[in-house]
């Protein structure tokens, strides 16, 4: 069978896309559709599962199999798909409220198990669908409808959280940078196991310009740190560099250190400590902030282990025989005259 040839249009549905004009979700949708079309993989083999929130409408707009489920539970539902159907490519679409607040438990356990699926977390640092309350990634002091005197909730750093949850693939990208997004999607798709991508996504209605330090023409030059495997971590046109000091990643002037001392990025490092240190360079998109793949290591996937146990049991014991099973706890027979006799 020849591989199918698709265009982006093949992954669009006939549904009217109902995000606010100017929403970052449009750009992410386009990036994902473009990426899927380029894979030349049968469209019916993709499954998109989402929870609740603006991002969660995503599956309605992708012409694959999909389920728009309930708040926070998409990783659990997607796990049920991925465990039982290793032939499929399973994607979770979620947001900062969905994944990090109500669904935090499912997120960390799915990552820890390394179920073979890709989680795209659209982080806009705000609750959009409920019209503007602070989220688990909103900055301290943020004034919203539910925090008129400023938020007092200390925010999560989603990348640090994923690394702490034993994730085997962790990346961060930006809605507006479609080519970077597609690179991250490709790496995540090729990763076996749980892949987690935090996508900074602008909510132009309730939290506009939250990522201006990474998107603004001037600002991005100084703040965007592109992580590239095998290369020293430098940014700001080479003026700044990242070095490790006492287990901490710190930003220094490049010319103040021996070039050999500059941290060479290695996402395949089995020890997650360095990736974690790099994730602490910023706590949100403020000041120098790394984008790219923080971690990409191999560990047996949950679904393959589950299915290997099933296969091993069949190999060892043969296909289950139900008549034998129900008689396996000892039986006795009663003959037609009604007399019992032990067996």
């Amino acid at each position: 069978m020849t591989a199918p040839i698709y265009t982006r249009a093949d992954f669009q549905t006939d549904q009217e896309v109902r995000w606010c004009p100017g929403c970052g979700d449009y750009t992410i949708l386009a990036s994902v559709q473009q990426f899927l079309a380029g894979l030349s993989r049968n469209r019916e083999e993709f499954v998109f599962i989402s929870g609740i929130g603006c991002a969660a409408r995503f599956p309605y707009y992708v012409n694959t199999y999909g389920m728009h489920s309930i708040h926070g539970r998409a990783p659990a539902i997607a796990s049920g798909v991925a465990i039982t159907r290793p032939d499929l490519s399973v994607w979770v679409i979620t947001g900062d409220g969905d994944a990090l607040s109500i669904g935090g438990n499912h997120l960390i356990h799915t990552l820890r198990r390394n179920v073979n699926l890709t989680i795209l977390l659209f982080n806009n640092q705000i609750y959009g669908l409920t019209k503007g309350q602070y989220s688990p990634t909103s900055e301290i002091g943020k004034t919203t409808k539910s925090s008129p005197f400023g938020s007092i909730d200390y925010p999560f750093n989603p990348v640090s959280l994923a690394l702490g949850a034993e994730a085997t693939f962790v990346a961060r990208t930006l809605d507006m940078d479609r080519s970077h997004t597609q690179k991250m999607l490709e790496a995540a798709y090729n990763h076996k196991g749980s892949a987690f991508i935090e996508i900074y996504q602008n909510c132009n209605v309730f939290n506009d310009k939250a990522f201006i330090q990474l998107t603004g023409k001037e600002e991005r030059v100084h703040n965007r740190i592109d992580l590239e495997a095998g290369k020293p971590i430098v940014f700001d046109d080479g003026a700044k560099a990242v070095v490790m000091r006492g287990g901490e990643a710190v930003v220094v002037d490049s010319n103040s250190v021996d070039p050999k001392a500059i941290l060479v990025h290695d996402p395949t490092n089995p020890n997650a400590s360095v990736a974690f240190a790099v994730s602490r360079l910023s706590h949100g998109p403020y000041g120098p902030t790394p984008l790219g793949i923080f971690r990409d290591v191999n560990r047996p996937t949950y679904d393959s282990e589950v299915n290997a146990q099933v296969a091993a049991a069949k190999e060892k014991l043969g296909e289950g025989d139900l008549a034998k099973l129900i008689a396996s706890h000892g039986t006795w027979t009663v003959d037609p005259s009604g007399n019992g006799a032990s067996a």
Binding site: R73, A76, G80, H109
Partner: peptide, 21 residues
């Protein structure tokens, strides 16, 4: 295939996913 989930909701959630699949 049995799945000892992280909580009750994940138990039913995974089953819903398996049903869809």
């Amino acid at each position: 295939r049995t799945f000892q989930a992280e909580d009750e909701i994940a138990g039913v959630g995974s089953a819903i996913g398996a049903a869809f699949a």
